[in-house]
């Protein structure tokens, strides 16, 4: 059914070649179940909606002012049976929908691991990019999330700026990332492919470009990806301070002395405590000025396009 909707979209053919951005083209079990639940809800709700869509035009035609045949009962204002149906049917439908809601919400709890031994990835939201840290593998990236197909992933999120919301539609739903707090997304990919992830919570002028690539790889290719990344420069505090500037990926690359394009950046990341430090710094006393570590809380002194 979802495939049917997709083929009706113009340009669906080209969608194959691009990174997928919709949960109606699922790459994993979570998005698949979400798409199925959407269709289920639409189907059940149609029971109360179709009669309106069909009935109103019929009423207008049948009981138009000039109609000679139609019955006219101006004083009729109440019927027990009708009343029972009007309240009863919606109540039954809501009971059914509520049960499904209960079921799907519990099943798709983003905090619940999908399986054994999930791959741990930490994500830090910055203005206007995402930093992904792989503590197990000691690597980090900006704007690229590589995951092995078949192995569950547990993403832990925070932000080192304003509130953001991370969505990787073909794999799972979104969750907010907030400073000083962590949230989680659990998902897994069942096929290889490329998806687009994004921030959906407006956070300034670079918002429209805060997209990242999610690539689901076979385990061999994933291992190769990790070892490639390990040979990249180190993500230390000084580098992180540059990342924290308000800039989109291309500008960050310039700041780091790389070519100015939209290719993700790779790092080796031996500092496994970086994520926790980012979370913790918002918990300390104001007088200790620890918040100003790692580039300060406010607008960093340099960097691309701040707000006007």
């Amino acid at each position: 059914m979802s495939a049917l909707i997709l083929t009706m979209w113009p340009g669906a053919a080209t969608a194959e070649t691009l990174a997928t951005q919709s949960f109606l083209q699922p790459m994993g079990p979570v998005a698949e179940e979400q798409a199925a639940h959407l269709l289920r809800v639409v189907a059940i709700t149609m029971i109360v909606i179709l009669p309106v869509l069909v009935g109103v035009p019929l009423l207008l035609w049948r009981y138009r002012l000039n109609s000679d045949k139609a019955k006219y009962t101006p004083e009729w204002e109440y019927s027990n049976k009708l009343e029972l149906a009007l309240w009863g049917v919606p109540i039954i439908i809501v009971v059914v929908l509520a049960s499904w809601l209960w079921y799907s919400t519990s099943k798709l709890d983003p905090y619940k691991p999908i399986g054994e031994n999930p791959l741990q990835v930490q994500a830090i939201g910055l203005d206007w990019k995402w930093v992904f840290i792989y503590p197990e593998d000691g690597v980090a990236t900006v704007n690229e999330l590589a995951i092995p197909v078949g192995r569950p992933v547990e993403l832990t999120l925070t932000t080192d700026t304003v509130m953001q919301s991370m969505l990787i539609a073909p794999l799972t739903g979104q969750i907010y990332a907030m400073p000083g707090m962590t949230t989680k997304l659990n998902f897994s990919a069942t096929r290889t492919g490329t998806a687009e992830g994004e921030n959906t919570q407006f956070n300034g002028t670079g918002f429209g470009r805060q997209k990242f690539t999610v690539i689901a790889l076979d385990s061999d290719r994933y291992d190769a990806w990790v070892s490639d990344a390990r040979s990249a420069p180190t993500l230390d505090d000084a580098t992180y301070t540059i990342l924290r500037r308000r800039s989109v990926l291309a500008e960050t690359r310039t700041d780091l002395g790389l070519t100015k394009d939209a290719t993700p950046i790779y790092f080796s990341a031996p500092d496994t405590a970086l994520f926790d430090r980012v979370v913790q710094k918002y918990h300390q006393s104001r007088t200790a000025h620890t918040v100003d570590e790692l580039g300060g809380t406010g607008l960093p002194p340099q960097g691309g396009g701040g707000p006007e």
């Binding site: 809601l101 919400t105 969505l167 539609a169 959906t200 919570q201």
Partner: peptide, 13 residues
């Protein structure tokens, strides 16, 4: 549709 948290996770925002 939006009242379902599981779908809202996808189409929120």
């Amino acid at each position: 549709i939006l009242a379902n948290p599981s779908i809202d996770y996808q189409v929120h925002n």
